[in-house]
Design a binder for these strands. Structure first.
Length: 219
DNA sequence: CACCAGGCAAGTA
DNA sequence: TACTTGCATGGT
């Protein structure tokens, strides 16, 4: 598996890299985007982020002070806007109360502690937590998403219903620990997924398919 | 028109 | 524990 993932990475990096992920000007934007993109196309998230940026509301202070109903209306294009407003409030309130809204202070705490903290917040599951930890807080933790699972499954490397932590472990134990590598690999998997590994596949042109042939129908 | 998108939590049995 | 359902907009 180690050699296979290394092979995947080389092909993807040659094809797409370097990616420069996560797309966002600030760490706060990465955090907000991580919640807004839950089960949602990124183009819709961009519209919501633009609504916040336009009037200077993409700051920690503005978001903490903004009433939940107002926030919900501003993030409306990202879908699930009522529940996402509640989730953002819960997350930002936590950072406000525990760290005074200071991400540098938050960053000093160890990874396992921060991960448990984030997962305890209503609306923050494993993917959202790991995205924030890796891309906003600079922690060395791998992000698993729907594309990661679908790509490995379609190429016959894992079961389609493999659990989050187990799949994460495959990436984290088989490679040298390096957060830059984790950032880039996850980004590359998303690029490949968007282009060739959607639910309706286009395996013919997949750059990985020649060396790692897709399995016909295992999902 | 139907289906899908970088999840997550609450409800049911 | 293991499944199912609600949440909602915008693109294809």
């Amino acid at each position: 598996m180690k050699d296979t993932l290394a092979g995947f990475y080389r092909i993807l990096e040659d094809h797409y890299g370097p990616t420069g992920w996560w797309p966002g000007d600030t760490d706060l934007e990465v955090i907000v985007g991580a919640v807004l993109t839950q089960n949602t196309a990124w183009t819709n998230v961009e519209k919501a982020l633009e609504n916040l940026k336009r009037d200077g509301n993409l700051t920690f202070r503005a978001l903490v002070q903004m009433p939940e109903r107002d926030l919900a209306q501003r993030i409306r294009p990202s879908g699930y806007f009522n529940i996402k407003a509640k989730r953002l409030k819960a997350l930002l309130n936590h950072i406000h109360e525990r760290y005074g809204g200071d991400l540098r202070r938050m960053r000093r705490r160890p990874l396992p502690t921060l991960r448990k903290e984030l997962l305890a917040i209503n609306g923050i599951g494993p993917e959202t937590a790991d995205s924030i930890l890796l891309y906003a807080l600079g922690k060395t933790t791998f992000v698993v998403d729907a594309y990661t699972r679908r790509i490995l499954s379609r190429h016959g490397l894992t079961e389609a219903d493999i659990g989050y932590e187990e799949l994460k472990g495959i990436f984290e134990t088989r490679f040298d620990v390096d957060r830059h590598f984790y950032k880039e690999f996850h980004a590359l998997l998303v690029y490949l997924g968007k282009d060739f590994c959607r639910k309706v596949p286009r395996c013919e042109e997949c750059p990985v398919a020649s060396k790692y042939p897709p399995v016909i129908s295992t999902e």
